[in-house]
Design a protein around this nucleic acid. Structure first.
Lengths: 384, 384
DNA sequence: GATGATACGTTGCCAATGTCAACAAATCAT
DNA sequence: ATGATTTGTTGACATTGGCAACGTATCATC
């Protein structure tokens, strides 16, 4: 319940323009005029200000074969960057992503053992020091961290990252203290849905669900009514613990019959006779498609049917436009898209939900880095 | 992606003030100054405009025992009203609700048979004609309809209201044509959550879930990140079709093992030996509390445990602050709150979600009328 | 009951912003 | 070259909220 004043108008308009060129790519001033509904002169002034601040660049227009004065192209700068960090079990990945969407760098630093939070901070700080030299001419606006675990929304405290063994680690504070950059963190899957929504399969949509199948469980994120839903404390999206069967298998939290207990990458690898280390999501999908062993097929069907129960539950509650599947869930889906689609349809209120689509994630290995960078950019986009 | 101009600022500020006094009750100008962050002079001008338009009234301040010039109390007008309509199986209820929150009238028109859409329109139009005479001095700003079924968001088409037997009825159009008022409609449960959120158990919260148990099924609504979630097409909130068991009982949509199949008012009445017609939610709760028959207790426990599965699934996905239970679900909860709370906790990621609360609905019989009126007020609140 | 302290509404001036209309510039078609 | 079309630029303008000074209404104290 806040009032608006003049500065807010300016800020909102600058924000709107910067968001447009950041999310939807370069646009001519004339296009911006149409999209925002603002006056030509206003657009001129606002773009001028953004250029002055180095956030956007104006390029000479490309010939359009149309009559009329050509309109300069406004593009988000390549030289305004965020640093994205993704700590994992066996590596820490650090990326440099520009406001333009370009991924300048992606560095994977393998760790011999699962890093502690302190080690992750030290490693990240080292890489950032190098990157700072390399990108001296650039403007580094902040750092975003994608954490595989529960992250408290308001301060970025890592409440519990089971696979890293982190509990109540003030990761943001630590990284901010070492690097001097503003640092924000969020759950990796919720960043995944942000990335897919703005730059991937869910472009421009206001209601979508993202489920990611990782080696250690299933997480997800959701966008509801155009807002990335974090829930009360930022823990929303734990699809993995939805009950889908009356079985006795338990998940990482000790709950029986959940999606995460029944639908696992490990079980797929086991029936294929593969080892975890050798197989990424693409290789898994290829292997699943190549195999015609009945046991493999049976396991795939079993998992798809359980996945359908969880998805149907979410669809009935959220009525999304799109369900995006990432990680091994995309592989699972790829083996028999029809089966999953039909199973979900059978468990939802048919006609009403027939517009729901299911699609594999589009952004591959850069997904989390893009999502984390987006998180870091958010402050800038809100108030350029 | 819209730009802001001067008019938008004014509109936003007027809207903010009107929303404040509508939702949070009367407030002094000084309080408004603090809440909005706007200047005293600005508040003066804005309140003056709202008074001129008849939307708010200024009262002489009550003695506060504080030093300083007393600040006039600004209150939403009693004389600006919306008409709320709720068609049901055996009656049509029409209410007159003021912007101040006062429920001026509530008329229940019993119908001998379940009304068709055309009959509902005729009956409503008749009542409205009378009300118009009665409230001649008032300003009727529009009509909101709470429909027990799926309502398409963008045009208020009633896609399917199973218990009324309505399919693809252009209810809004019909009512607007007959009454000449702007008419908006939405699912009853999603209006329930709006009402509880602004005026009931979920006051001021940004993330909550509402589940209503009716004689014919379980519906619900959700607020995610401060936004009433309608989903892609407005069908969000169908909690009743979440799978909670491997059983064979089916729900109204023919899906087996769902919440709506396992948790029913009918089963509770059956073990109590009561008839549907005689028993409202309060009477049901009293009967359940009074009975100590093992069969009753067993049925209550069974239903509570299934309800917990559905709630836990929603909690893991949405991480809400509060779950509001209405209708017979409130009665069920009232019998053994602890059992439900414990069961939900056991099925969610314990520590992370321990802030979730469960509460019965506060707004009784007026719930839907208040929600429907709120829907009608929304246009006015957005642009006073 | 006069005085001061406190809190708040009112008034006139000011800065900032977006709009508008007129004009200039850059392209295409003839 | 000329006109049509589209768009950027410029300066005048209206509107808005902020601000500071002033007026007003209450309480506390003597």
């Amino acid at each position: 319940m806040q009032g608006n004043n003049h500065d807010d108008v300016r800020r909102h308009n600058l924000s709107t323009i910067l968001r447009l060129v950041h999310r939807q790519g370069a646009a001519s001033r004339a296009q911006l005029t149409r999209l925002t509904g603002l006056n030509r002169s206003t657009i001129g002034a606002l773009v001028g200000e953004l250029v002055e601040r180095g956030l956007v660049e104006e390029r000479t227009p490309t010939p359009t074969k149309l009559a009329g004065r050509p309109s300069p192209i406004v593009a988000a700068s390549d030289r305004v960057v965020a640093i994205a960090v993704n700590p994992e079990i066996d590596a820490i990945t650090v990326g440099v992503i520009a406001l333009s969407g370009v991924v300048h760098r992606s560095i994977r630093f393998a760790t011999p053992t699962t890093p502690t939070a302190a080690e992750a901070v030290t490693i990240t700080a080292g890489i950032v020091t190098d990157l700072r030299r390399e990108y001296e001419e650039y403007s580094i606006i902040g750092m975003g961290v994608a954490v595989p675990g529960l992250v408290r929304a308001h301060d970025g405290l890592v409440r519990n990252a089971p696979h890293l063994g982190w509990v109540d680690e003030p990761l943001c504070e630590m990284l901010a203290a070492v690097t001097g950059l503003p640092v924000v963190a969020a759950n990796d899957a919720s960043l995944g849905v942000t990335a897919e929504r703005h730059f991937g399969a869910g472009r421009g949509m206001t209601d979508l669900i993202y489920l990611n199948g990782g080696s250690s469980g299933i997480g997800g994120g959701l966008v509801v009514g155009g807002v990335a839903a974090g829930g009360r404390t930022g823990y929303a999206g734990e699809f993995g613990h939805t009950r889908v069967s009356a079985g006795r298998r338990t998940d990482s939290a000790g709950i029986a019959g959940t999606l995460e207990a029944e639908v696992t990458r490990g079980a797929l690898l086991a029936v294929l006779g593969l080892r975890a280390g050798d197989t990424d999501a693409d290789a898994l999908e290829r292997a699943l498609l190549a195999s015609d062993a009945p046991a493999v097929r049976a396991e795939v069907d079993r998992q798809l049917d359980f996945l359908a129960v969880a998805l149907a539950g979410a669809v009935n509650i959220l009525n999304p436009e799109l369900i995006v599947l990432g990680g091994f869930l995309a592989a699972l889906y790829g083996v028999d898209p029809g089966r999953l689609t039909r199973a979900v349809a059978a468990l939802t209120l048919g006609a009403a939900f027939d517009e729901v689509r299911i699609a594999p994630a589009l952004l591959g290995s850069n997904l989390l880095l893009i999502g984390a960078a987006e998180l870091a950019f958010e402050a800038l986009l809100l108030d350029p």
